[in-house]
Simulated scan of single mutants.
Amino acid sequence: MLSYQHGFHAGNLADVQKHALMAVTLDYMTRKDKPLSYIETHAGRGLYDLSGVQAEKTGEAREGILKVADWFGADHPYTKARERIAEEFGETIYPGSPALAQALFRDMDTIHLAELHPGENEKLQDALPFAHVVKEDGFAFAQSICPPTPRRGVLLIDPPYEIKSDYATIPTFISKLHRKWNVGVIALWYPILTTGAHVQMTRALEAANFPGFLKHEVRFPPAREGHGMIGSGMIFVNAPYGLTDEVTRLTGLFRSL
């Protein structure tokens, strides 16, 4: 299934949670003068126009980053990445996770991205010409490239969950990756739906007893009447030092909505 396009949802409250935590993670890891690898299994197109037709149709960004931008001060890495993207591409352009990584990375760092959707893949290559971009199944790609060179790095698993079996297979997928790449920071994003589809997956991951395990879930109003997503979650394996501070801060901010 290749119908999902993130342009309709870019900059929504789920993105705010995900991108704030990823920005803090990448900022912390780039403080050490050693090269990093960044890998993403479902990268999307990289850059999104919040004034475009898709974003305007849903209005999710208006209730997301455009509403809560003041949660993040000028020194927050999420703000810094967004400002760097705006300077290069324009004020209405919002960075997806790959562009966020590129904005925070150094010349020594490497980016590997998988995106199977043909149209999204083409736009991704245009947006991030210096990244290694493949049109492959993201899960298979991650297994093939891990452990990456350099070994220090971050992997983001961010599928659209169009394939419902993803909830059942992801715990085993992460276990296999961690055995191959035990020093890697593995991050997983998932939606919190009214159906509770994520619950068995998160329980299985909690039971796996991974090192540096961190789970963060937030709730927010549905984007529109009848919309099934009422929150989002992030799970980290080998979570970097200090990420719990941002988790605590975000928890309080989302509760204020």
Results as ranks from 00 to 15, higher is better:
Leu2Pro: 04
Leu2Asn: 15
Ser3Glu: 07
Ser3Met: 08
Tyr4Ala: 02
Tyr4Val: 05
Gln5Met: 13
His6Glu: 04
Phe8Gly: 09
His9Phe: 10
Gly11Trp: 01
Asn12Gly: 06
Ala14Tyr: 11
Asp15Val: 04
Lys18His: 02
Lys18Ala: 02
Leu21Asn: 01
Ala23Met: 11
Val24Asn: 09
Asp27Val: 02
Thr30Trp: 01
Lys32Ala: 13
Pro35Ser: 11
Ile39Pro: 00
His42Tyr: 07
Ala43Cys: 14
Ala43Gly: 08
Arg45Ala: 14
Gly46Arg: 04
Gly52Pro: 11
Val53Tyr: 00
Glu56Lys: 12
Glu56Trp: 00
Glu56Asp: 06
Lys57Gly: 09
Lys57Glu: 15
Glu60Asn: 01
Ala61Ser: 14
Ile65Pro: 00
Ala69Tyr: 07
Asp70Gly: 14
Ala74Gln: 08
His76Thr: 06
His76Gly: 10
His76Val: 07
Pro77Arg: 11
Lys80Ala: 06
Lys80Gly: 01
Ala81Gln: 04
Gly90Leu: 10
Tyr94Trp: 02
Ser97Tyr: 13
Pro98Ser: 09
Gln102Asn: 11
Ala103Met: 05
Asp107Asn: 11
Met108Lys: 14
Thr110Tyr: 00
Ile111Cys: 05
Ile111Trp: 00
His112Asp: 02
Asn121Arg: 01
Lys123Glu: 11
Leu124Thr: 13
Asp126Phe: 11
Leu128Met: 12
His132Met: 05
Val133Cys: 13
Val134Arg: 11
Gly138His: 02
Gly138Ile: 02
Phe139Cys: 12
Ile145Leu: 15
Ile145Thr: 11
Cys146Trp: 00
Thr149Pro: 01
Thr149Leu: 12
Thr149Val: 13
Arg152Ala: 07
Gly153Ile: 08
Ile157Gly: 08
Pro159His: 02
Pro160Met: 07
Glu162Leu: 08
Asp166Arg: 13
Ile170Val: 14
Ile170Thr: 13
Pro171Phe: 01
Phe173His: 15
Ile174Met: 15
Arg179Ile: 11
Lys180Gly: 03
Trp181Cys: 04
Ile186Ser: 06
Ile186His: 08
Pro191Leu: 12
Leu193Gln: 14
Thr195Pro: 03
Thr195Asn: 12
His198Leu: 02
Ala204Thr: 11
Asn209Lys: 14
Phe213Gln: 14
Leu214Gln: 06
Lys215Thr: 02
Lys215Phe: 06
Ala223Val: 12
Arg224His: 08
Gly226Ile: 09
His227Cys: 06
Leu243Asp: 09
Thr244Ala: 15
Glu246Ile: 05
Glu246Val: 09
Thr248Phe: 01
Thr251Ile: 03
Leu253Ala: 10
